[in-house]
């Protein structure tokens, strides 16, 4: 996880939460937290960090965790994700409903506020791969193509990791590479 932000950054993070509302701020489950962090303020780019995939128990279904950082001054929107290894790629958020059930909702337009990051982590936001067409092994790289409203196409690589190892947020080796 990211280091504890200082009070000013907490305030900024809260502001970011207010701006993006439920789209990026999980309801207390820590999912999809938007937080202003020093790193992306100056990058001037939209990047993907620490993209990982837990080696799937069901070889046909997997979830990508990552941090999407918007280092630009323009609010952006994640419109779609694709991957050559899956028939269907969907951006989802898992929530718990009033009856304690897990419900996944598609995030067709996921807001990535300016100078902020959105974390995809277990039990929260994930990029869901279904109909996976080849056997993934730990250490494999999976190509992802993210399309943003403003930043356009951003390519990223997600590394397949041991089950339960993904979602550590920005510490993995996977991430954006030059297009």
């Amino acid at each position: 996880m990211t280091p504890s932000p200082r009070p000013l950054l907490v305030a900024l993070a809260l502001a970011a939460c207010v701006l993006v509302g439920t789209a990026a701020c999980g309801s207390g489950d820590g999912a999809g937290t938007a937080a202003a962090q020093g790193g992306e303020v100056a990058s001037g780019r939209v990047t993907v960090d620490g993209a990982t995939i837990d080696w799937p128990a069901n070889p046909r279904v997997a979830a990508v965790r990552m941090v999407v950082r918007n280092g630009t001054g323009t609010p952006d929107v994640l419109r779609s994700v694709s991957s050559p290894v899956a028939e269907t790629v969907t951006v989802h958020r898992t929530d718990t409903d009033a009856q304690g059930r897990s419900v996944m909702t598609e995030q067709a337009e996921l807001a990535i506020p300016a100078r902020s990051s959105v974390t995809f982590e277990p039990g929260g936001l994930h990029v869901m791969l279904t109909g996976i067409t080849r056997d993934l092994e730990v250490g494999d790289d999976v190509e992802l193509t993210l399309t943003f409203e403003h930043a356009g196409v951003v390519d990223a690589t997600a590394e397949v990791v041991e089950p339960g190892a993904s979602g550590t947020g920005g510490d993995g080796s996977g991430g954006t590479h030059d297009h």
Binding site: D54, R60, V61, A63, H92, P122, G123, H126, G164
Partner: peptide, 10 residues
């Protein structure tokens, strides 16, 4: 369920 991508395997 075994096609559950998130909560179950996690």
């Amino acid at each position: 369920y075994t096609n559950c991508p998130d909560v179950c395997p996690v």
